[in-house]
């Protein structure tokens, strides 16, 4: 190794300025106009709006995947079309096989939109945050909720569907209908679990591997750990309900142990 001159690096003067942050307005494709829409969330993939379907009293969700300016147009079209169609197909199958999901009312893969049934309720994430803020009590209610989460995910896996992005934000607790008007705090622990956002879902009747199911659970486990430190211990209750939910669930739990160990640079001690 020949000695080379070492170039000293000077201290920085100031941070590089972040790029401008004024957000461009997405124009929605026909037949939607911005006037009858209310933005619900901006997910990673899609803008989600609340609108009405057929009658002014039937609320619905419009899920619009705008073109991503950072992606190469060829890649962008390919991903948008594949994901939108996959999502619609999986939702239809779930609905048919008795998994509680929002139904598909309409779709256009060139335009990048999907119209779905409205779900009245809160996300599990929101419910858990509220529960943690109230002091993490109400043992019975929260354990019941975790059990229903485990059963819902188990039913999904039983029919051969993997969610692909199973986080606590993608699980909703439906408000029991009769109580929609007068809601008490504990009620939010009572409703049915509805799975939403199947944008990364996959379905297969034969080939669905325990591996994919286990990765689903692993993603959910990390979502519990990452977002709600207080909710982390609850995940074992989700798993135990899942383990009873269908034939083959035990094998998935076994696989989950392998998946956990595979995270990179995980300590050799466990």
């Amino acid at each position: 190794m020949a000695p080379e001159t070492i170039e000293p690096t000077a201290p920085p003067l100031r941070a590089p300025s972040p790029p401008p942050t004024d957000r461009p307005l997405h124009t929605l494709p026909a037949p939607f106009t911005s006037s009858n829409l209310e933005v619900l969330t901006q997910g990673a993939e899609a803008l989600v709006y609340k609108s009405v379907f057929l009658t002014p009293h039937t609320p619905c969700v419009v899920k619009y995947r705008p073109p991503k300016p950072y992606r190469h147009p060829v890649l962008d079209r390919r991903l948008t079309k594949a994901r939108l169609l996959a999502e619609a197909r999986v939702l239809v199958r779930c609905k048919r096989d008795g998994v509680d999901v929002p139904g598909v009312l309409g779709a256009d893969w060139e335009g990048g939109w999907l119209v779905l049934e409205w779900v009245e309720g809160k996300t599990v994430r929101g419910v858990l945050d509220g529960w943690a803020e109230r002091g993490a009590g109400e043992k019975e209610g929260i354990l019941g909720l975790m059990e229903r989460v485990g059963l819902a995910v188990g039913r999904l896996h039983e029919i051969g569907v993997c969610h692909g992005d199973l986080t606590t934000s993608n699980l909703m607790v439906r408000v029991p209908e009769k109580k929609a008007e007068v809601q008490e705090q504990n009620d939010e622990l009572e409703g049915d679990i509805v799975l939403i956002d199947f944008g990364l879902a996959s379905h297969s009747t034969q080939n669905l591997q325990d591996e994919d199911r286990a990765v689903d659970l692993y993603v959910l486990e990390r979502a519990f750990a990452a977002t709600h430190p207080k909710a982390e211990p609850l995940f074992k209750d989700v798993l135990s309900a899942y383990g009873e939910s269908f034939k083959g669930a035990r094998a998935v739990l076994k696989k989950l142990e392998d998946v956990r160990l595979r995270g990179r640079k995980r300590s050799m001690l466990g």
Binding site: P18, P19, P20, K68
Partner: peptide, 8 residues
């Protein structure tokens, strides 16, 4: 991406 989300 960040600009579209109103971030930096």
């Amino acid at each position: 991406m960040a600009r579209d989300r109103g971030g930096s």
